[in-house]
Amino acid sequence: MAQIDTAKLKASNKQAGRKIGGTVGIFLFLTVLGLFMAMPIYLTIVMSVKPVEELFVFPPKLYAVRPTLDNFRDMFAALRQNRVPFSRYVFNSVAVTVSVTVMQCVFSSMAAFVLAKCRFPGSKVINNIIVISLLYQSNVIYIMQYIVMAKLGLIDNPLALILPSIASPMGLFLMRQSISQVPDAVIDAAKVDGAGLFRICWQVVMPNQKPALMTLIIFAFQGAWNIQTGSVVFQEQYKTLPTVVTQAAASGLARAGVAMAAAVFMLIPPVIVFMLAQKNVIETMAHSGIKE
């Protein structure tokens, strides 16, 4: 085990002037800071398995004396009281999350490629509008969005959960910034070979954009997974997991444990997606060979 680790350390130190001591120092520094960063998350997990009577013990303990899954059981019990079976909410959330993530990634990648690498009438204006729309935050927008959705007949329609999240200016901006680093020579060469823009985008540019694309998947998944039905969809059979889990968890401090259980439960899928995507990001490093 130890041998493998040192081999890997050496492999990552092929660059100039790497000393093993420096890497160990960085590791220690990050560990200390990481412990501080992870503390509230750790406490969330601990609280979610603490029985009720342990919540108000003095001094509060950093671990559960008698860990229990009661809080999770209570949460699911509260969910079971709903008219609609639990699996329906899971299905709704998965359907919304998958369709938003896929469409957001495909549409943003294409648009980002065009905006980063082509000059055409309107390209500058659109680039500016994207950044401005990121900066313009106003609570009036939600009202206007509601009016637009009402005009389109989307209120109380499950599509209202999907359509507004597809075009995320943040996702586009991220991809645009990353694609702008691709040398023009690469694209010109492909053009000379007779490839159309669509093929250049998907076969020349995107295969080398894995780090940005994986990051976009993380953002899109995380955003879509947390979409609340809130004020646009009212029918019980269209509600998503975050809406009903919040409902189940929201009642007083005595149920802090249940709230923690809900938080932990909702965190599991994004963390899994995050791990898979990050693994992919890190693997791309070895062979990213775009040259001028």
Partner: peptide, 21 residues
């Protein structure tokens, strides 16, 4: 071709972001 590739994003962007803004 540029506009065609931009369109899917822009349609949703205009309807749900630009118009409300």
């Amino acid at each position: 071709a540029c506009y065609a590739m931009l369109a899917p994003f822009m349609i949703f962007f205009i309807v749900f972001t630009v118009i409300p803004v």
